[in-house]
Design a binder for these strands. Structure first.
Length: 583
RNA sequence: CGGGGUGUGGCGAAGUUGGCUAUCGCGCCUGGUUUGGGACCAGGAGGCCCUGGGUUCAAGUCCCAGCACCCCGACCA
């Protein structure tokens, strides 16, 4: 492609509203152009990248016997009512209607379409398993579109759906898809981490996310470099320090004998820090009780070691209900004294129950509020002085914790979710009564899995993960072109040579972006860095003197330093480029 | 949906004690000189100053309402 003819050019400065790295570089480089918040045009360069990403995805889906189809975007509202998601996803659904008032949903996902479709053709266990997929535009009215193509309202997605006779078969296929997904990211030049996903607050459904590390990520994940496990911090499990790990104080505590509990005057503020100061003790020796209002269940106090935080998502999962922290007014109304709430000496008239986090089990002679203003109780011991109704894990895991699996050190990283796979079970097949006849001639339910990769988001993710201060650094596999061919000096001989090389490379199957403009060297170099093709080849008077071209790779060399430019003789260029592209 | 910010030729910006023909850089067009890291000279085209209402002799500038975009939060089958 001659750059002079290419639709969509670089610009000196990015639009002021292109704030995220991917929006800025992709817009400045002429890959995309915003139409509205979360809605983008893909220009020729951007579309080429997207096409390459799609082909990688296709190839991996085909390898797991996925068959490509193409489903409609316009879904009649009826099918969305049938699964209940017309209501449950109401907030994100775009709706439209024809002139005859028939109502439609612009597809945010395709379970409602694919399940009846597959049901039409699949009647027997002999037809299973089956996997179909498509690469299609999705519409979701995100409350807040942001970060360029990372969170759009209209975006591209590959969605695959698999159908199985048994849960075991689904499990086996699901595991194959994990590998296929990891392959996709690797082939796109990205290192992915597979993590167990929260699957929503009230669901125990199995799902996995694939995360790519970049500072622009919306998620925080915890990685154990020792065993390779990665978890989302929202649901992470991990090991915190026990009393015996706390040095001098901790050792003393481990040997400590339980003492009789005792009320003491405590003129202090409501915080744990205030308690530490008053009693001259570390935070872990204080019992923290946080009160939540659980939907329909009233007040619940969660007791946890004072140095740890409560993960409210875990609390929600425990109760399988909506929770919210009790407001100061509500505490007062219930007869509780904020800052001095604890499971000991609770007045009988107060309606509250207590659940303990496991962390409180091992602390001897802990300190808690006495449910009275300015009074604490010291030397409190679980079992003898108080009990809780149940124990569970409510701890908010941090990077300072150790890996729950192997004890290795954890590190916190920001990550972008670049894919998501779910075991749906029979939720959607049940909704449309999709069964098959089994060997015993009985009608049995069909198990279903779904597997999504946001392909447009993936393009943005690659940019977030692969760029420097000068522009994008496309991995070879997804670069819109392999080679950026540049002439300098508006020299007749150089132009002639470049024209010829452009033809030869193209003939050899190399994708070349040929900057044939008469602009100055600086302009061409800046544009080349910004667009970020893997290999830059310069032809100028200077290189002609040596009967060679200048060869410079965009990616830094293995030591992280910028790649050095080198000369390659004209006669070797095509051969060398072919080799470079294939590597 | 809550909090904060922004809206002026294609892009980036200046311009608010209200006042002349709305300013600058980039880009674009014409001509010329240049050509190894965003060159230079001369000339030129291009603007509903987000929208609507109001105040005023006079509004890009003040007031009211709305819209759009960006950031933080809530949300994210």
């Amino acid at each position: 492609m001659r750059y002079s003819k290419l639709f969509g050019k670089t610009r000196y400065s990015a639009p002021a509203d292109a704030d995220s790295v991917n929006a800025r570089l992709l817009t400045q480089g002429g890959f995309i152009e915003k139409q509205a918040a979360g809605i983008y045009n893909f220009l020729p360069l951007g579309l080429r990248v997207l096409g390459k990403v799609n082909n990688i995805i296709r190839d991996e889906m085909n390898k797991v016997e996925g068959q490509e189809i193409f489903m409609p975007v316009l879904h009649s509202r009826e099918i969305w009512k049938a699964t209940g998601r017309d209501q449950s996803m109401d907030g994100v659904l775009y709706r439209t209607r024809g002139t005859d008032d028939q109502e439609f949903v612009l597809g945010p996902s395709h379970e409602e379409v694919v399940t009846p479709l597959v049901k039409t053709f699949i009647k027997s266990y002999k037809d299973l398993p089956l996997a179909v997929y498509q690469i299609q535009t999705k519409f979701r009215n995100e409350p807040r579109a942001k970060s360029g193509v990372l969170r759009g309202r209209e975006f591209g997605m590959k969605d695959m759906y698999s159908f199985h006779l048994t849960e075991e078969d689904l499990d086996a296929y699901y595991d194959r898809c994990k590998i296929a997904y990891t392959n996709v990211y690797e082939r796109c030049g990205l290192k992915s981490y597979m993590i167990e996903a929260s699957g929503g607050a009230f669901s125990d459904k199995f799902s996995h996310e694939f995360s790519i590390l970049t500072p622009a990520g919306e998620d925080t994940i915890l990685i154990c470099d020792k065993c390779g496990a990665a978890q989302n911090i929202e649901i992470a499990q991990g090991k915190y320090a026990e009393p015996e790990d706390f040095g001098e104080d901790g050792k003393a505590n481990a040997k400590e004998k339980p003492l009789p509990m005792k009320e003491v005057e405590a003129k202090r503020g409501p915080s744990i820090e205030a308690g530490c100061e008053l009693h001259g003790c570390p935070a872990w020796k204080i019992l923290k009780t946080v009160v939540y209002e659980v939907e329909d269940d009233g007040l619940v106090g969660i007791c946890i070691r004072g140095d740890l935080q409560i993960n409210e998502l875990k609390v929600e999962k425990y109760f399988k209900k909506q929770i919210r922290p009790a407001s100061p007014e509500m505490l007062k109304k219930a007869g509780l004294v904020q800052g001095f709430i604890g499971p000991v000496n609770m007045p009988a008239k107060v309606k509250i129950s207590f659940i303990g986090d496991h962390s409180i089990k091992n602390v001897t002679n802990i300190i808690t509020g006495a449910n009275a203003k300015d009074v604490d109780i010291i030397n409190v011991n679980i079992g003898t002085d108080y009990t809780v109704e149940d124990f569970a894990d409510f701890v908010q895991v941090r990077g300072s914790f150790k890996c729950g699996k192997c004890g290795g050190a954890l590190r916190e990283e920001k990550a972008i979710e670049a894919g998501n796979i779910f075991k749906l079970g029979t939720k959607f097949t049940d909704a449309v009564s999709f069964t098959v006849t089994n060997k015993d001639q009985k009608q049995v339910p069909v198990f279903m899995g779904c597997y999504g990769i946001g392909n447009t988001r993936l393009v943005g993710t690659i940019v977030e993960a692969c760029h420097d201060e000068n522009g994008i650094i496309w991995p070879k596999s997804v670069a819109p072109y392999h080679v950026h061919l540049i002439t300098l000096g508006n020299d007749e001989e150089a132009t002639k040579k470049a024209d010829k090389l452009y033809e030869e490379l193209t003939e050899a199957g190399i994708e070349v972006l040929y900057d044939d403009r008469t602009d100055s060297a600086g302009v061409k170099f800046k544009d080349s860095d910004l667009i970020g093709l893997p290999l830059r080849i310069v032809i100028s008077k200077r290189t002609l003197e040596r009967d060679s071209v200048e060869w410079k790779e965009r990616a830094p060399s293995t030591d992280g330093k910028p790649s050095e430019a080198k000369n390659v003789a004209f006669k070797d260029v095509v051969k060398e480029v072919v080799k470079f592209v294939k590597d």
